[in-house]
Amino acid sequence: MPEVIFNGPAGRLEGRFHPSKQRGAPLAIVLHPHPQFGGTMNNQIVYQLYYAFAERGFSVLRFNFRGVGRSQGSFDHGAGELSDAASALDWAQAVSPEARACWIAGVSFGSWIGMQLLMRRPEIEGFISIAPPANRFDFTFLAPCPSSGLFVHGDQDRVAPVKEVTSVIEKLKTQKGIVIEHALVEGANHFFENRVDELMVAVGEYLDKRLDNPPRVAVASRAD
């Protein structure tokens, strides 16, 4: 997939972008786990999410937050990373001006950033939030949650226990017509070790339901 460099608030940001061949295709932005604990855009789940969207006809971008890989700047405890995500969406919209909609997906720390971006950008119509660390970061800003989406958790998650996420979801205020779904992956820990396939089945089923079973698009080799 094409490597891209775009400007962020703290300098250049490194990413990978798959442009859809279909005019007006929707956009998806995928956000990686915590930069200080090894999170990068090449995280296995981020990688799989990227292709899940690409194979369903999206133009999709994954990128490294500031200070990760070849992205400039340094870790900013969430505030700067949210600005990075906003810049990523701005860049994707600039190169795909006819995009009719946008989705956001995030893993762990990235899910916290993604949900904050969702609250600020009304064009985001769907989300995938994987292993959101509701015990470590405040999710009470989701009041109301403006878009339908999916939370996914492993039932053996010790980093962000599922009961914490369930509590957040139960307290979510939603707008009329908004539906929040929650999927549990049996036997999965916070990193979905040996359970990534099961995770992606849950994500794929949700996307297919929301998108009305879109035809699959041939995507260049995942080794590219």
Rank of each mutant, 00 (worst) to 15 (best):
H190N: 11
G149L: 01
D157H: 01
K171S: 14
F137N: 03
S167H: 13
S167N: 13
L184H: 07
V185C: 04
N189G: 14
D138Q: 03
T140S: 15
T174R: 14
F192P: 12
Q175T: 12
F151S: 06
V159Y: 14
E186N: 11
K173F: 00
F137W: 14
D138W: 03
E164N: 13
H182N: 09
P161L: 04
V162Y: 03
F139Q: 01
K176T: 10
V179G: 00
V162P: 00
G154S: 09
F191I: 15
R195C: 07
K163S: 12
E170I: 03
T140L: 02
V162G: 00
N189S: 11
E186A: 15
E170D: 13
T174C: 12
S148M: 10
T174D: 03
A143W: 02
V159H: 09
G154Q: 10
D138K: 08
V162D: 06
R195W: 01
V159T: 14
R195H: 08
K171I: 01
P146D: 08
T166W: 03
E193K: 12
A134F: 10
E193G: 10
I180W: 05
Q156Y: 04
I178K: 12
H153K: 11
T174W: 05
N189A: 04
T166E: 12
A188N: 04
I169F: 01
